[in-house]
Amino acid sequence: MKNSSGDRNLIGLGISLLMAFLVSVPFFASDYWMTLLVLILIYTVYASGWNLFSGLTGYTNFGLAWFIGVSGYVSSLLIADHKFFWLLAWPIGALFVGIVSIGVGYILLRIKGVYFAISMVALTEGTRELFGTEYLEPITHGGKGVPFVAGISLSALYWSILLLAFMTVIVCYKITSSKFGLRLMAIREDEQAAETLGIHTTREKIIAFVLSAFLTGLAGAIHFTYQNYIDPSFGFTIHLTLTPIVMALFGGVGTVFGPAIGATLFTFIHEILWAELTILYMAIFGGILILLILFFPQGLLGWMKERGVLPRIRKI
């Protein structure tokens, strides 16, 4: 406890240096490295956003792709069909998925455990199919997809996602060390007991769900602007749910920095494996998932905390 303020200063210094470096990247790095960093930062937001809700409340969200796809669609359509400026289209997409998530959360968060996970998959799959039908084609362009050019430079895109990733980690840090975060953890530990102790569990769950939707949605909007394209199978692919979960699991579920570390490592692994073994890459990914659950369920940071390498506090 005594040296915690010293620790904090050290961590603060480290973070400031890292930020200064990251902000200056566009001035010296090649497009290849910037692209790689953009992906790392996008997945940092995805993994942290998933962790913010699922890691703290214990409700496994298997529909992260729904947040990403809905916001990605709204912002892409605004840019492509309505000539919105990207900086305006992104928050509208994220706000849209955030607001819809209030209703979705209110309805689906009554369902517990595995059934909640399945209902989120069903929601994602249902939306994916629906966006490809002829009924929504006038709005969504159906299965043909939406190609578009946002007219944003790589540097501007990089700085935007850097800012978002930074904000997301700060939000996660603030929440895990707040009473709100404790209430979410109480829900994870024993929801009924939490409710008889006066915690409005439904409200807390919805707030966390919506916050997670907004942050991942914002990253999703940036993601599809970066790709210049979205279609139903691309926007709602199960990989957009799966990859962030693996990253969060690897780094440590319920930790602040774990998902960011997981995102960084896995994006690199992806880059290397993808180049070498394109098809087998996904198989290896599946294998890693199995091994993680069997041998490493507490994640990297959890493992280090157990070993005493890191202090057993929530703020890491």
Binding site: L182, M185, A186, E189, D190, A194, L197, I199
Partner: peptide
């Protein structure tokens, strides 16, 4: 039915 993976202090502060 306390919250096992939370500290004693957290168990109280949370409510």
């Amino acid at each position: 039915r306390i919250f096992p993976k939370m500290t004693l202090l957290e168990n109280l502060v949370v409510v």
